[in-house]
Write a protein that binds this DNA or RNA. Structure first.
Lengths: 262, 262
DNA sequence: CGAGGTCTTGAAGACGATCAACAAACGTGG
DNA sequence: CCACGTTTGTTGATCGTCTTCAAGACCTCG
């Protein structure tokens, strides 16, 4: 955790709130997309958030090698899970969007194997690990839903390994755009067929394991073929089916279907 | 779950066992490398295993697209998490060794986004999801350890994304060998500086996202430089430090350190 | 209006894929 | 134990994708 601006006064920070509000909390909304929660579970979840913090674009929200005692929930903005290698090489291993529990895994993992970097200005809710510990002691169902969140992260990683290993650069970019489109849809952040994508082509290159020059060329090729239009931080997808088809995109791994967890 | 030979009579299958035995169960051993367990927790874990099954090399232990009601624990042999794409392309996203809880994630995930394929003859213990459900209802600490196992899997996936995206083929192969060396050491499967690796160069190619021809060339280059000798299913590492250095291998992600979870 | 970041384009070269052929190892049955 | 077929490993030649380096155009924001 580095140079963010501490902030209090979250709309949902206090325990003295009515029950109606709880369903509107971004954390509750996200988890209830996976499984319904009881009032007590919502309460426990909302109360687990301690403070909010803001991070300017480019800043490190969590540092590789550190051992955090809180986990971050992304309220606003895009962030990247960034692994730094020797020789200045870096690789983004996941893109985090509003509503994502960015580093829930740091609750149990010993040390951070990657950084969390703000890809745009970010607003983050902090959840102390002690609170997560309490939740796992008292709320088995809620624990399973939290666990599930990290399992979906794992599935996304697998999809990335397959994409980077066996798809062409063009297909890979298309696949990532499909993934973001579906996830942002779920988060209510797609308007029509377009969404705001604050990442630069160079950020994208770090996510795809390519050079920024090649991302540029591949982007232009996809534009030429009418699969995407990506300009001025706006990604537009004229025909999602066509793009998904080209990318060989199968959304199974995003776990949209759900499963009875209670 | 396909054509395996069902088998009963596990040494630890019955509930009527003495307490001393439990610590020797491979499942217990694996979890206790991460955190100590109470007697009740060991009991619950061992009792969760229903039957054992065997799978010949090349067979599918779990099928992509299926919705398993049991999870598999690998007692013996090597298995690969294999993602199949269109056009016959395939990518291994993780290598499973004896002691690994191969598809624990299928407990909560809706459908399998990948297959589990036997890379050698395998012996597997089956754990019904209903039993895992019971564990998560009654044993918070044990639940956290199981969760942690899947989080380490996620960390391995991240390391693979970084390796495949930003390392040269030579470094990548070296990195994978380092990973296997460390994990097999923990499982007590390294003798001296060598271990049995039942995978073919072609399997390795599927894990590295390369062609088998190139894996062969890279292997020979590493041999020429004295970093590995890999022949007849035996991988030998004359100087692990040297190999780790070359591969830019940092074992943090394997979570060897541990953390207080109780 | 100017400066720094981002995008675009070109040219050259490295890395890895593909195709093809052969050698070595393995396993299976006679 | 050997013969034979199959799988796995090895090598060469050629091709394509993506990288690197370099320079210029375009934005955006102070």
């Amino acid at each position: 955790m580095s140079d963010g601006v501490p902030r209090n006064g979250s709309l949902f920070g206090s325990s003295a709130k009515g029950s109606a509000d709880l369903a509107g909390h971004p954390l509750v909304q996200r988890l209830e997309q996976l499984a319904p929660l009881t009032f007590e579970e919502r309460r426990a979840l909302v109360d687990a958030v301690s403070v909010e913090k803001e991070f300017p674009r480019g800043s490190e929200i969590v540092k590789q090698g550190s051992e955090p005692t809180v986990s971050c929930f992304l309220l606003d903005g895009f962030a990247g899970q960034n692994t730094y290698l020797s020789g200045g090489r870096e690789q983004i291993t996941a893109i985090r969007i509003p509503g994502d529990f960015v580093d829930l895994h740091s609750f149990l993992l010993a040390g951070m194997d990657h950084s969390i970097v703000a890809l745009s200005d970010c607003r983050v809710g902090l959840v102390p690990h002690t609170n997560l510990k309490a939740i796992t002691d008292d709320h088995p169902h809620l624990t399973r839903v939290l666990w599930l969140i990290t399992l979906i992260d794992g599935a996304i990683h697998r999809a990335w390994v397959a994409a980077i290993g066996r798809r062409t650069a063009e297909q890979h970019l298309a696949h990532l755009v499909c993934e973001l489109y579906v996830r942002l849809s779920r988060a209510g952040l797609v308007e029509g067929s377009a969404f705001t994508l604050p990442m630069t082509q160079s950020d994208m290159a770090n996510a795809l394991g390519l050079s920024s020059v090649h991302v540029n060329r591949v982007t232009m090729e996809l534009r030429r073929n009418g699969l995407i239009s990506w300009r001025h931080r706006v990604m537009e997808i004229p025909d999602f089916e066509k793009l998904a088809d080209f990318a060989d995109f199968d959304p199974t791994y995003l776990n949209l279907e759900g499963k009875r967890l209670r």
